[in-house]
Amino acid sequence: MHPHQQAAVALSGVQKAIAADGLTLVVFDCYRPARAVSDMGEWTRQGGPPDPQWYPKVRRNDLIAKGYVGELSTHSRGSTVDVAIARADRKSAPKPACGAADADTLDFGTGFDCFDPASETAHHPLAGEATANRKRLVDAMRTGGFRNYAREWWHFTLENEPFAKQRFDFPVAAE
């Protein structure tokens, strides 16, 4: 197996495991070229007020300092994914006030990419089933060989990633 395939194979194993419970993974983000990370860093430095959908309590130029955006993202190593869980029948959960609201995921208390303390994996209190759903996701991903980034319930990196010290910058393009 090529080292680049390790994360994909591990993620496939998580998908197979949760499918037995009528669930499916929703992948929001995976490999991100270093040039895209650099562009995101530049975007944060342009500043701006809080944004109620994406970063309701933080100014844009504080997103790196607060740990919501990385100057050197683990996504550029090819072993990090941003994921959630949905019901395989795609029965919708309530839409979150912060973050992405376009996926039919389970209730996680916030949407994906909500840069707010409420997105911390262990944040309490959370309404509804969000705590149980976060635990379900973390447990499934941990069993599959991934570790969670505590600031973001959706962010996971392969435990024994093959390129832990490297960043890749090859572009992503449709063939």
Rank of each mutant, 00 (worst) to 15 (best):
L106Y: 05
N160R: 14
A7E: 09
D102W: 08
P50F: 04
V14E: 12
L11Q: 03
D51I: 02
P96L: 07
I85N: 03
V26H: 12
V26Q: 11
W43H: 01
H75A: 01
D104L: 02
V9D: 04
E152C: 00
K165C: 07
T131K: 06
V58Y: 08
A174P: 08
G78T: 00
C30S: 11
P50V: 09
P162G: 03
I85D: 08
A7D: 01
A118F: 03
Q53D: 06
A8V: 05
H4I: 10
N148L: 03
A93T: 03
E175S: 13
A132K: 14
P162E: 06
P52S: 14
T24M: 09
P125A: 12
V27N: 07
H4G: 12
R32L: 04
L106D: 03
Y149W: 13
R134L: 01
R35C: 09
T24H: 14
Q6L: 12
P117Y: 03
Q5F: 07
M40C: 05
L137Q: 07
E175G: 11
K57A: 10
P162D: 06
H155S: 06
G22P: 05
E159W: 06
Q166C: 11
R45L: 09
G145N: 04
R77A: 10
E129W: 00
A65H: 10
Q15S: 15
G144M: 04
Y68N: 01
P50Q: 07
L25I: 04
F156C: 01
N160T: 09
R87S: 09
C98D: 12
R142Q: 14
M141A: 08
D89C: 04
S119K: 00
I18R: 12
G41S: 09
E161D: 13
S79C: 11
P96T: 00
Q15H: 07
S12R: 09
A127N: 13
T110G: 09
P96S: 02
G70H: 14
Y55I: 05
D107W: 13
S38C: 03
A65V: 09
E161T: 02
A132W: 01
T131D: 10
G41R: 09
L23I: 02
P49M: 03
D29H: 10
G145E: 04
D39A: 10
A88H: 11
T157E: 15
F170Q: 15
G109H: 03
T121Q: 11
F168D: 13
H155V: 04
F28W: 07
A173P: 00
A36V: 06
K135Q: 08
V14K: 07
D139W: 06
G70A: 15
Y68L: 01
D169N: 15
S38T: 15
T44S: 13
A17W: 06
P49V: 04
T105K: 00
Y55T: 09
G144S: 04
D104W: 00
S76L: 02
P162T: 08
Q46H: 13
G99P: 01
A127K: 14
N133Q: 08
S76Q: 03
Q5K: 08
G99K: 01
Q166K: 14
T74H: 11
M141G: 03
C114F: 01
F163P: 01
E120H: 11
P96Q: 02
A17D: 12
H124V: 14
Q53L: 10
A36P: 00
Q46N: 10
V138D: 13
A10H: 06
